[in-house]
């Protein structure tokens, strides 16, 4: 169960990454054929590369706040599962 959905998380990550990069490139009016590389273009790509993905990395911590399993809770869960199995 976990593994299929972990796979989905990875593939979702790849999908969002693809859309995000092309959206950002559109936003900064990226021109792959530009004869001259402007400081503005360099600044925008630098921002995307270094800052945008750093922010996303930090945003990933928010769902982690919902993960509150400790060993005591896990032990309780094990007991519940064992009881269910007996019944």
């Amino acid at each position: 169960m976990v593994m299929v959905f972990c796979s989905l998380a990875i593939k979702l990550g790849v999908a969002i990454r693809g859309v995000l990069i092309t959206a950002l490139l559109t936003w900064i009016a990226y021109d792959p054929n530009a004869a001259v590389i402007t400081p503005e273009a360099q600044g925008s790509i630098k921002f995307m590369f270094a800052i945008v993905f750093s922010i996303i990395m930090l945003v990933s911590l928010i769902p982690l706040l919902g993960f509150r399993l400790d060993e005591q809770r896990v032990a309780e869960m094990e007991q519940e599962i064992a009881k269910r199995a007996q019944n």
Partner: peptide, 24 residues
Amino acid sequence: IAILLHDAIRLVAYYGIAAATSYY
């Protein structure tokens, strides 16, 4: 759900950095 969301979002960044390297 929390773990999977966390994983998906951090992988957006991970694969994003890798893909953005060529542009950089």
